[in-house]
């Protein structure tokens, strides 16, 4: 099992994520909706993977199940060699803190905090206080925002705010970055900036799983999967 949070991992080593016969069913009054239907998937460390598909195809549900936020109705989910679909909240909390990080469609930041403080925030839950400020500054520098470190969220553009989210996702050195429509609300130029950011992170060895509607963004990932009716219809 890989317990080291280092991002320097080699492609084609032990799978980072394994989904085995995953189904997610939402029961309604007269019928059930299959968000995911008997899905199998393996993601290797260092992969840069995108899911595309129409609304309701199960993309976000899949992302949440991979990240341990949601549980499948049936099937097994493994992350870094550990089965996570049966884990208690306490252990899932550790996984969310150390192994998985999210970048969401909207730049979900705390407006009362500066860019730097937003990046540092996840460390408050881990209790990690070692050189946190220095690390956060380095991450902001990595996403090109070192000069905006002390700016409040409302002083940042949409693209800058999203880059702060990316820096925040990296602060606890996760094994896996899950991005849910990370460029959804951005203009073309800013989208390109964010895409380049993800490409750079992947080049450093980060594993990135992205959900997107944007064919252009999907086309730039190394592996592209198309979801339809809860199944992978094209790879």
């Amino acid at each position: 099992m890989n317990t080291n949070a280092s991002v320097k991992v080699a492609v084609n080593s032990q799978p980072l994520v394994v989904l085995s016969h995953i189904s997610k069913v939402y029961p309604l009054s007269d019928h059930s909706v299959y968000a995911l239907d008997d899905m199998n998937l393996t993601i290797l460390p260092g992969e840069y993977l995108s899911f595309m598909g129409p609304s309701g195809s199960g993309k976000s549900t899949l992302l949440n199940i991979i990240g341990g936020i949601d549980k499948p109705t049936s099937g097994e989910v493994y992350l870094d060699g550990e089965r996570i679909d049966t884990l208690k909240e306490q252990r899932l909390l550790v996984i969310r803190r150390r192994k998985v990080a999210y970048v969401l469609q909207e730049a979900r930041l705390f407006p009362s905090l500066t860019a730097l403080e937003n990046v540092m925030l996840p460390t408050a839950f881990v209790g990690d206080r070692k050189q946190v400020r220095q690390r956060a500054l380095e991450l902001l520098s990595k996403v090109g925002l070192e000069k905006r470190a002390n700016h409040l969220v409302h002083q940042l553009s949409g693209g800058e705010a999203q880059r702060v989210c990316i820096a925040r996702a990296l602060i606890n050195q996760p094994l896996l970055i899950l991005a849910d429509e990370p460029t959804g609300n951005l203009d073309h130029e800013t989208r390109l900036e964010i895409v380049q950011q993800f490409e750079a992170l992947n080049a450093e060895g980060h594993t990135i799983v992205m959900v997107t509607h944007d064919p252009e963004l999907s086309a730039r990932t190394r592996r592209r999967l198309l979801l339809r009716d809860g199944k992978i219809s094209q790879s």
Partner: peptide, 16 residues
Amino acid sequence: IREIGLLKVLGASRWQ
């Protein structure tokens, strides 16, 4: 609830 969701996703425990 949105804010609480984000804090939980960022790793906040119930106690925190």
